Amino acid sequence: MNEPVSTQTYADQIRRLAELTARVAAQRSEAHTWYAQQVAAAERAVAEAADQVRRAETELVEAQRMVERVDGEVTHLWAGLRDRLGGGARRLGDPPGPVRDAVGDPVPLLRGVRELLERTGQPGELPGSVNPLLIACGIGGALVAYLLGIGARTLGAGSGGDLAVGLPVLALVVTLLGPLVGLAPARLLADRRHAVLTPRPMILVAGSGLATTLLLLAATYTR
């Protein structure tokens, strides 16, 4: 037969059982708390990772747009450079590609290149070395107009009716416009030298043409 358990031993066992139960409950509570903390930390890590992915995707889209913008600007600037060089642009080839391990914002660099091209592409004034050519334009224009006037007067002299009256008047108008005729070749000269036809060369052309016209008219009417 089983021996009866003493009251004191039974009370000790009950107390020990209660202590073990409390310890198990505390450990279970601690395990639940730890699990909840781990789940919260994992959820935070997932949320942070998702946010980082969204930021990375946004940065990737912006970077792609920047690459497209830079490529387009490089192509445009390269085309402008080829226009500046003219016939020598064949040696340039295609626009340069991206440089490996390049750092920094390309926008200020592209802006500097654009400003440099704009400064170099701005037409300037004709140099003083072309003054003889400008004078020749004025003289040549006046001579052409004078010869056209002579032709019109000759044609009018050999005609009758209204032509006999109108052609001499037209000849006089063409002759008087002689000082301005030389501005056309002067403009072509300025365009070939990528320059602007400023008032100084215009006055030089018109002045030489006017002097030539006056001399021709004086020579004609003093015969």
Score class of each variant (00 low, 15 high):
Ala56Asp: 03
Ala142Tyr: 01
Val39Gly: 01
Arg69Leu: 07
Arg16Gln: 08
Arg90Phe: 01
Ala56Gly: 04
Gly207Ser: 13
Arg100Gly: 05
Ala102Gly: 09
Val107Cys: 03
Ala18Glu: 15
Gly140Asn: 02
Leu197Trp: 10
Leu147Trp: 06
Leu204Val: 15
Arg16Cys: 08
Tyr35Trp: 14
Glu3Ala: 14
Gly161Ser: 06
Asp191Glu: 15
Gly72Lys: 07
Ala190Asp: 01
Gly93Tyr: 04
Pro168Ala: 03
Leu172Ile: 12
Leu170Met: 10
Ala40Cys: 02
Leu172Trp: 12
Glu125Ile: 00
Val107Ile: 11
Glu59Asn: 10
Val196Ile: 14
Thr33Ile: 12
Gly182Ile: 04
Pro179Trp: 00
Val61Ala: 11
Leu77Ala: 15
Arg69Pro: 00
Ala22Asn: 12
Gly149Met: 03
Ala45Val: 04
Gln37Pro: 01
Pro106Ile: 02
Arg100Gln: 13
Val53Gln: 15
Gln8Tyr: 07
Ser159His: 04
Met202Gln: 10
Thr120Gln: 12
Ala145Glu: 00
Glu73Lys: 05
Asp101His: 09
Ser29Met: 07
Leu172His: 07
Arg65Ala: 07
Glu118Asn: 07
Asp162Ser: 14
Tyr146Gln: 08
Val74Cys: 06
Arg192Gln: 15
Gly158Val: 11
Gly93Lys: 04
Glu68Met: 09
Gly80Val: 05
Ala164Asp: 08
Val165Tyr: 15
Val113Lys: 07
Leu217Tyr: 01
Ala50Ser: 13
Tyr10His: 13
Ser129Leu: 07
Thr75Gly: 08
Val144His: 01
Leu189Met: 05
Glu30Met: 13
Val181Trp: 08
Pro201Thr: 05
Arg114Glu: 12
Val173Arg: 10
Arg91Phe: 08
Leu214Thr: 09
Arg200Phe: 15
Val39Cys: 04
Glu125Gln: 14
Gly88His: 04
Leu60Arg: 15
Val99Glu: 08
Val107Leu: 10
Glu62Ser: 05
Val67Met: 10
Gly160Pro: 05
Val107Ser: 04
Ser129Asp: 09
Leu183Phe: 02
Val113Thr: 13
Gly161Ala: 10
Ala40Asp: 06
Leu167Phe: 14
Thr21Lys: 11
Ala56Met: 06
Val165Pro: 05
Arg55Asp: 08
Gly140Cys: 04
Ala195Lys: 06
Leu77Glu: 06
Gly93Met: 00
